[in-house]
Amino acid sequence: MTNALTVAGKPQAGADLLRIVRINEEIKAVVGVAFKINIMALNAIFLAKRAGTTALGFGVLSNELRVFSQDLRTCMGSLTDLIHRCVNEVSLVLQDIRHTKLLRDAVDLSANPAGQAILQRREAGNAEHRSRLGALRRQLQRSLEDAFRLVELGGVLAKSAKIEAAYGQAFAGPLAQVSGEFDGIVEEIRNSLQALRRSAFFSDQ
């Protein structure tokens, strides 16, 4: 589709498609990590149970982290759905560009009287595709912000778990390790989401 990528004044759609593919890959990575947190939280809950009364606070936080990982997966699921709809709309916009260019060339070359009306009808269809893409773009941006806020909360939980681990007496070592891993992973997700927020898909329009 190099043709559509380079049509004068309209390089946007081709670049957008590549950007969305990048965003989707990043989200897939986050979904994978969110799944890992779920299993880690389960292990932490068992560990806290074994540690008994000395790790009550840690147990509560582990439960919260497990809820967090489920929320995160739901959130990523809706982002993935939005991405797929964006890919669909961008593909339509790409087709529109090529199709309309060929139509316009035909109408210009032939000076066919019916041509202008047909071009106008076509342009109206194109504008609808573009505005649908614009709405999806804004929706995706909002959903990313929601995900980011959720991850900030996850970060707080992980840091609190690190503090609670210190009270684990005989279990302090393993609890510290688990909470350290939580913190590392949440930080990883945070960085991914931050990169996504900076994607030119949202800024360069």
Partner: peptide
């Protein structure tokens, strides 16, 4: 083909109403 549509369409239009 789609790529030659403008050329075919305009030639045809000179002989016949494409609609």
């Amino acid at each position: 083909g789609a790529e030659v549509f403008p050329a075919v369409f305009s030639a045809l239009s000179s002989e016949f109403d494409p609609t």
